[in-house]
Design a binder for these strands. Structure first.
Lengths: 237, 237
DNA sequence: GCTAAATTATGACAAAAGTCATATTTGAAA
DNA sequence: TTTCAAATATGACTTTTGTCATAATTTAGC
């Protein structure tokens, strides 16, 4: 899994740390993490961990993009969450002492650090503010998950599609041209995010293109009319 | 909100404490909780807290049944979670320092205790094992929420309906006759749990009755054929 | 550049689920 | 009990969404 030739970063000067749950860690604690962590890079499509395996620690994303997905009926994938720079992945199962309930796969060239389980639990023991960071992270994830439940249960596919596109813009931002989504997902992946069939996804994207809300650059999606998408997504605030 | 005539229970001898996140609390900490808590009972249909309000603490359920629900499009309710004896409600928003993202309503005569925010945060500061209890609770809620996402996105309504009925049996159990669901929900409430229209819920319940999977005692639902429901729900393990 | 495989696109159709109208039943209050 | 509003039930119909077949396009590998 870990390759010898990987560059080992330094936590103290890690840029993504300030955006993460480790932002308030004391220098001496940081030292412990630094000595025990392990850095690694993933190519697009490479899996970080798989549903059913046992976690031995958690992963901090330095750069890149990760999707968290679960296997559903008849091998159909469902994307439940995304992660980017500063996010922590694979921590839910580790904290609960369970097997992974979902898998994580890189959507891009991604750099991550692995921090062993015992280091994290020692930190929780010692540093209450770190516990609170974890609690806030879980709370935030839970809030978003419950929002997804609401939308999947009540919004029609067209609304969810518009919403998902805007979410991807929000989450991963746009390329330097100011319109192209930074994250590159296949139509099938978008379908598993929105919770619909691939053909329906293709049709809706074409429809949005016809309505001049989007345009395509090859497979890449460009957001042309954000207010228009907001309207379709039925988001007012 | 709080009524003077409510009986104030004693945390030390509280039966539901052993099932809760407070099971490992030290006696002196328990004393602090006991002195600051506030007990209250709710009648069926009474709201414990409402979406958008600010939390001042959390609620422990002593007995009874609570639904956690959100308002969706056009005033349509969505049930996202349930709570019973030993469960804690209203903690997510409090821990995250946010407004409530959902409301809580009693489904029965329910007895709860309120514990103020500052007491909880002091406990997190002092007792790492309590933090871990909260972390595990959030993790468990998150796991279930992500499972709901998967099912809402991929399972057809009929499967979700069978699954929800089995979930209600699991969650709140059966009456002494061994078949009647202890929790009494209207068809409309079941619809908001399953994520479908009320008419569809009524039709599916009738279908299940015809197939001798269920029977009705007035409005109450009786589970006749659990294996049959498991089959429809497409649950194998 | 060329080919094969994967992805995207589109049409025709089927199935699932929602909506609206209208009975019928139930249960709580007078 | 009686009455009435709310909840449940059912039919007819529409809309949404999914499925299958097949075509066109893109991409990756040689």
């Amino acid at each position: 899994m870990a390759k010898k030739e990987e560059i080992q970063h330094d936590c103290e000067h890690c840029k993504s740390r300030y955006k993460s749950i480790f932002c308030q860690i004391a220098p001496e604690e940081l030292q412990v993490i630094n000595e025990n962590k392990w850095c690694q890079t993933l190519e697009k499509g490479q899996q970080l961990f798989a549903e059913g395996a046992y976690p031995h620690g958690l992963f901090c994303v330095n750069s890149g993009k990760i999707k968290i997905h679960q296997m559903g009926e008849e091998g159909r994938e469902q994307i439940v969450r995304f992660a980017k720079e500063g996010d922590v992945v694979g921590y839910r199962a580790m904290l609960a002492g369970e097997k992974y309930s979902s898998s994580a796969t890189a959507l891009d060239h991604t750099s991550i650090c692995f921090i062993p389980k015992n280091v994290i639990f020692a930190l929780i023991e010692k540093d209450a503010s770190f516990s609170i960071q974890i609690i806030k992270l879980l709370s935030s994830n839970l809030k978003h998950a419950e929002e997804s439940i609401l939308h999947l249960a009540q919004k029609p596919v067209r609304e969810r599609m518009a919403e998902s596109l805007l979410f991807l813009k929000e989450m991963y931002g746009l390329e330097s041209d100011g319109i192209t989504l930074s994250v590159s997902l296949s139509r099938e992946e978008i379908a598993t995010l929105v919770g619909t069939a691939t053909e329906t996804t293709i049709r809706l994207l074409s429809e949005f293109k016809t309505k001049k809300l989007l345009s395509f650059d090859g497979r890449k999606i460009q957001i042309i009319d954000t207010p228009g998408l907001l309207k379709i997504a039925n988001i007012h605030d």
